[in-house]
């Protein structure tokens, strides 16, 4: 989208023009959803968070500083809305000091490429508190101190949550390599079982006919 077009859309949204609002919504849908999906437990929650974020965008549009990139502003709102959404259960953490425990072997990570859906699925499986810290630290690039002030937790909690998140994610990544084999094994068993049943049935029918 061109800058002029964007400014026009923003002007339209300031007039509460529903058509322009939809166009803006559509234009930033993918971007916003990609942020909210990372913080949310599932797609349903993600869209709920995103819509609340967009509501903030639409109602606070006059506060937007036109000198700065709009997309960054929207991204910031989406991130803050996501964090606020799970703020009530962010305190969940391990209380022991984990500085020593941070050393987990990461060299044994499989080299295979995981696609977007797999990765998002893994992140979404994390508990809210771990997921939020992991997002802020690993993907947004905040320091533990910044995260601690933003979430109202201690840096220790932030560190421990990150550690826990990484541990869980690592296991998921490692296991993801094995999962397809297990599945195919299951299906092979099924095929064998069905085959055996059908053979025995046909034998039985033959016997009856005789």
């Amino acid at each position: 989208m061109g800058e002029a077009e964007l400014q026009e859309l923003i002007a339209g949204c300031l007039q509460h023009n529903r058509k322009d609002q939809k166009m803006l919504y559509k234009a930033f849908y993918g971007f916003s959803m990609s942020i909210c999906l990372r913080y949310a437990g599932n797609r349903y929650e993600a869209s709920e968070i995103m819509n609340q974020g967009f509501l903030k965008v639409f109602t606070n549009l006059q506060k937007y500083d036109t000198g700065r990139p709009f997309i960054a502003w929207v991204g910031r709102i989406m991130m803050n809305t996501s964090v606020d959404y799970y703020r009530s259960n962010l305190k969940l953490s391990l209380n022991d000091d984990l500085d020593a425990a941070e050393d987990i072997g990461h060299n044994d990570l499989p080299d295979q490429k995981l696609n977007y859906d797999d990765l998002i699925g893994m992140i979404q499986q994390l508990p809210n508190a771990y997921r939020t810290v992991f997002n802020l630290f690993a993907i947004e690039g905040f320091s533990h101190e910044e995260i601690a002030t933003q979430l109202g937790i201690s840096t220790g909690t932030s560190k421990s949550n990150l550690f826990k998140a990484r541990e869980k994610l690592k296991n998921m990544v490692i296991n993801s390599g094995r999962l397809p084999d297990a599945n195919s094994g299951d299906s092979q068993h099924n095929i064998v079982a069905i085959g055996a049943i059908s053979i025995s049935m046909s034998v039985l029918i033959e016997l009856i006919i005789k």
Binding site: N107, L109, L119, A138, I139, R166, L169, V173
Partner: peptide, 8 residues
């Protein structure tokens, strides 16, 4: 450590 973060 960054390898995992980087992956995601």
């Amino acid at each position: 450590e960054n390898k995992l973060d980087q992956l995601f």
